[in-house]
Design a protein around this nucleic acid. Structure first.
Lengths: 309, 309
DNA sequence: ATCTGCCATATCCTATCGATATGGATTTTG
DNA sequence: CAAAATCCATATCGATAGGATATGGCAGAT
């Protein structure tokens, strides 16, 4: 059996006429007759009743006709699906992000843009820790991940820096510095020399940790670290509990947490927090490729905050 | 595109190995490689990633694989459906019957037997008058019909005599002859010489009408006909209304109608009522053929009523 | 570095699909 | 009523393409 048989059969059935069907198929009548007979022989079923003036379908022929049409349509559908999948218009995509990523307005915006631009993609979002996300990427449980620090061992992965933003001081609302009015004047980093710090733990991604330590050293003191938090967001919980102050990406200001006050920093150099996209280096998926392209393109044109001091 | 391409592709996808797939397909590796490439060229999509140690599917290839399997299954299904249709195991059948036919126990029994024996057939039952059934047969609205008289013009049709049964006298419950006890002794036909008769109208099918008239003549009188009824069952309504007596097939005794009493007949010859199956002579449908065969076979072995005098 | 495994390319053969020619059955037409 | 026309089936032949064989190339394994 080949598709040819079905195509020929449909033509004959629709024309009710072998000669006319042959014409429509751009071939001669005898080979068409033969192919139809071959189909009947293979099925061991009479599909056509030969009349003096053309042919007509038997009941079995009618049954086959509708199926044959459906099969050809099925194949058509399979082809377009395959092509669209190859073009990255169809498929699935799992995007991971750390708890702090979605606070950056870029992340929800680019994800919404991707959904709008590729409605055929089944998009899944997964929040997780940086370490877990890296593992998920390597095990193909996640296709791309928004993270906030460079990774220690990016073997097999690509980590794309997208944007940077300033960091803010998060401090307990009861703290003396918080009294200077909500969002008071920027504070020189040196003023924090005596404070104890809550930091995002280093082993997941050293970037933020090191940037904070380096900035403090540049400001002339070595910060005292009281506590490491597993996630950026959880540093705020510790700050609210009065365990110390923290430096967090500016976008976390949107998170109005009870007992936490924010203040800007002044002076140079200032610690800055990156937003990055991690993907598999060898990933050939068109969907992932489209997603990366969109993310990088959008990042390039993303409006920098006016005051990123 | 031909099915060959799909079959080959599935084998390669499942083996992850062109050489091994070729072996499984009973062919050599180079032509298989060519066919796969031809498929990729036609789709303009890369389906396989060539690795140093075998091949692996691209995302598009995975999309095609599941569709390809479904398509082959679809074809398989179409083939069995076609074959079963040809064998008469699948399809539709419309069986017509006159109002009096289902009273004969043979009819419900054979229909139930057919349903049990051919569960794949969508069976439709239609009650109608003999004339209409004949028309329905000719216009293919009905495939087979149980009727109670031979038809006047059976051109293009086959009318199969199945069974015969005795006829009973149906008379108003108030009639003098009815007083002789329910189901009293058989009455000689000659006793009815003075009665007026209600008969099933002749033009639909002359059989019953003529049989009754002939029997009366043989009994030495010419019956006086007061009224013609369009259906056998409706003769009983007229009898109940006191418009006369009627001779009806014995199986109608099962119809306990208020105001109607039944008595058997004695003497020879007695009028007898046939049960017949009408079908299209040229009908090639396997379903109809199976139905006819079953009906005739069942009729042949149907237990004759012990007293069919 | 050599060898092995596996896919791609090149060339040739043959099976089969399709074209041409013809026959047979039935209906339509002169 | 005979002849022409219509349409499907059969027979024969040729071209296309699918498959076989031989060989090359590339990347891991030994």
């Amino acid at each position: 059996m080949e598709l040819r048989h079905l195509r020929y059969f449909i033509a004959v059935a629709e024309e009710g006429h072998i000669t006319r069907a042959a014409e429509r198929l751009g071939m001669q009548q005898p080979p068409l007759s033969q192919q139809i007979r071959a189909l009947e022989r293979e099925l061991d079923v009479q599909l056509l009743r030969r009349l003096p003036r053309g042919v007509e379908l038997t009941e079995a022929g009618r049954a086959l006709l509708s199926d044959a049409r459906a099969i050809l349509a099925h194949i058509d559908h399979a082809f377009t699906t395959t092509r669209r999948t190859a073009r990255g218009e169809l498929g699935r995509l799992v995007v991971g992000f750390t708890s702090s990523a979605p606070f950056h307005p870029f992340v929800p915006r680019v994800i919404r843009a991707f959904r709008d631009g590729a409605p055929g993609i089944a998009l899944t979002l997964e929040e997780s820790g940086t370490t877990e996300l890296i593992e998920d990427l390597r095990h193909e449980r996640v296709d791309a991940a928004f993270i906030r620090t460079h990774v220690t061992d990016p073997a097999g992965l690509t980590v794309n820096p997208l944007l940077e933003e300033a960091m803010l001081l998060a401090l307990p609302a009861t703290h003396a510095f918080a009294a200077c009015g909500a969002d008071g004047l920027p504070l020189p980093l040196a003023a924090l020399a005596a404070e104890t710090f809550v930091v995002y733990r280093r082993h997941a991604g050293p970037g933020l940790y090191d940037a904070i330590i380096a900035a403090c050293h540049a400001a002339g003191f070595s910060p005292q670290v009281s506590q490491e938090a597993p996630r950026i967001v959880s540093t705020l919980n510790l700050v609210a509990a009065g365990l110390g102050v923290a430096l967090v990406p500016a976008s976390l200001r949107r998170m109005q947490m009870d007992g936490v006050a924010y203040r800007g920093l002044q002076g140079t150099p200032q610690p800055r927090a990156p937003l990055l996209l991690a993907t598999r280096r060898a990933d050939t998926s068109a969907v992932v490729r489209r997603f990366i392209d969109l993310v990088r393109q959008t990042a390039r044109t993303f409006p920098r905050p006016v005051l990123s001091v």
